[in-house]
Design a protein around this nucleic acid. Structure first.
Lengths: 350, 350
DNA sequence: CTGTTAGCGCATTCAG
DNA sequence: CTGAATGCGCTAACAG
């Protein structure tokens, strides 16, 4: 366990010089730096992150808060964030906060009691900044994040009071709905809404887009079908729809994963998609094409990368000066595949 | 930024007592502890991880090394590991080491030059132990891991010289192959092998299982089809197979994701699965059932959980005493679905 | 360009 | 059960 002092002794310089040399500060003579590096290497010296943090006040680590890992959007974000941070010398502290139970009770603002404290404790002092991935935050948590005393950036949507890089989920819901309207559909059902309309998480926003378009074109809203954004829950919804007397002819699903689940059950039951039911999802998940799913595509890695780079810039740049809250919305686009078609197609078809 | 001293002053005790009280050490009078906790809370005191690490020598963080995030196996492992560690007060330092390029050149043992050093630097002193997820390590890296000076556990298979919790990939490959043999197949092709047979990563081991069974039953090995374990690469393979004069009648795929990709292309091209081609995968990926894929199921979360709990035990327990290298293999099982059937089924069918 | 001097905030002896 | 003293290993002024 060589320490900086061993390296200093071996090189015949002071520990301060070793520190400077190894960190690449300009004010070190090149020959000196070379000797220091050599000695450090041959001694197998590795600086103590704890000591460096304590002395410098910076941890060179960044917290990454996410509600999931095994869902495509989050996995891609995590990979992207990690890659960018690592090339810039930052470590990633992964914190998973499953949203489970959070939107269930009462007015949708209750949390398991341990959660907010965990966030505060966990991130403060341990990291230099925090990246939050599309976590359906409640206001108490926003407060915690803002009180963290360091930069916070939100990825995947927008969050009140935080810098964010994401997409416009209302617009996404609207586009998906509009696509079906354009195909002549009038009876359009939204799948994937949650029960707590007070939250501003993506499914809720997408639902608002649906509502907006339906209102604009004067169509009656159908009762929303609640679902987690998973294949498993999509399947549950699919089976539920099959039990109805008549199938809904057009579905806007809040994500491709639900859409894929629904599609699967419908097809297994012999329903002709899109002839009997048109289905559109959101994401352009890698598996969407396997199911020939029409969807709204969003640039996931780009959102994560932009957010991370912005954060790195903010960490270098003027501290606390740019109090401007930056909210960037990346563009999405419709990917037309085979699960959507004109209303009434079935009747006009052999 | 309240420090331990502020809490001590506010409570009228020494910093040592604050430290003990807050960490739950037994040797503190209950009333004292209560007062300390109250003061700490009202001051918003959060201990400095850096200072604690420096003083105690333990970081309360664990490194998690993984080659991927967006693949099902790894995502589930990451979620599981994080959940277990967090409930035990440990932070997770996520390190992604994409295996890209590692098995490509020369004898399959070359690495991008930066990699091994990164590992050593990154993990040493920053974490108390390391969990490695099914990373196709080369011997140099094994050396680095073993020289890290702390506990290391491997998840998903086994690694020479490391404690590990995983499945027997050779047996998995053998089971999959045996299933096809039992169905009367004689012309069986392995998909997903890598080009570097020197490595002992899962695909290679599964391939060895295939080889073993083929040899045992006296069947000729077919030329292995290389593929990444992804849907995209599975599709590439599917298209390649379609260009052959005759389709291989039976495929053992090294993972469900490749299998799903292959299946998709075959079906889109009008190939009847399983009548013309039988396909079996490995994993029992959540999407496998959507494609009616026969597969070998493995308990992913269990592997990760066992490994993590073992590690926590090792961190508490006797240091360096239990030099026994523990290798635990969990059981897998065949899940028969609709993508495999008897050889010659097509001919005997209307 | 380099050395000297102080802490960073806590956990841990060792006394009491 | 509690307090006083020591140092973990490094970075950041400040001199030179």
């Amino acid at each position: 366990m060589a320490s900086i002092e061993d390296v200093a002794r071996a090189t015949g310089v002071s520990t301060a010089t070793v520190s400077r040399a190894l960190r690449g500060l300009a004010s070190v003579a090149e020959p000196t730096r070379a000797r220091v590096q050599l000695a450090a290497q041959s001694l197998g010296y590795v600086p103590s992150a704890a000591a460096a943090s304590l002395a410098s006040g910076r941890t060179k680590a960044i917290g990454l808060l996410t509600p999931h890992v095994s869902r495509w959007f989050f996995a891609v974000c995590i990979e992207t964030v990690e890659a960018v941070l690592r090339t810039h010398g930052y470590d990633v502290l992964l914190v998973i906060l499953p949203p489970g139970g959070r939107t269930t009770p009462g007015p949708g603002r209750t949390l398991p009691p341990s959660r907010p404290m965990i966030e505060g404790d966990l991130l403060r002092k341990r990291v230099d900044a925090t990246i939050v991935l599309t976590l359906p935050l409640v206001s108490a948590e926003l407060g915690v994040l803002q009180g963290l005393g360091h930069e916070v950036v939100y990825v995947g949507g927008s969050a009140p009071g935080l810098c964010s890089f994401g997409i416009d989920d209302v617009a996404v819901g609207a586009s998906a709905t509009q696509h079906l309207v354009d195909l002549g559909h009038r009876d359009i059902t939204f799948v994937g809404g949650s029960l707590s309309p007070g939250d501003w998480a993506p499914p809720q926003e997408r639902y608002r887009g649906y509502q907006r378009v339906m209102a604009e074109v004067g169509l009656p809203e159908q009762e929303v079908v609640s679902a987690d954004l998973t294949v498993a829950d999509g399947r549950r919804v699919g089976r539920e729809l099959l039990r109805r007397r008549t199938l809904p002819p057009a579905l806007v699903c809040a994500s491709d994963e639900v859409a894929i689940g629904v599609l699967h059950e419908l097809r297994v039951a012999g329903v002709d998609v899109p002839a009997q039911v048109s289905v559109i999802g959101v994401d352009d998940h890698p598996h969407a094409v396997l199911h020939d799913l029409t969807t709204i595509s969003q640039p996931v890695a780009e959102q994560a990368e932009l957010a991370t780079r912005w954060l790195l810039g903010a960490l270098d740049g003027p501290k606390g000066e740019d109090a401007v809250i930056r909210t960037e919305r990346l563009t999405t686009h419709l990917v037309t595949r085979g699960t959507t078609t004109h209303a009434g197609w079935e009747r006009s078809h052999p």
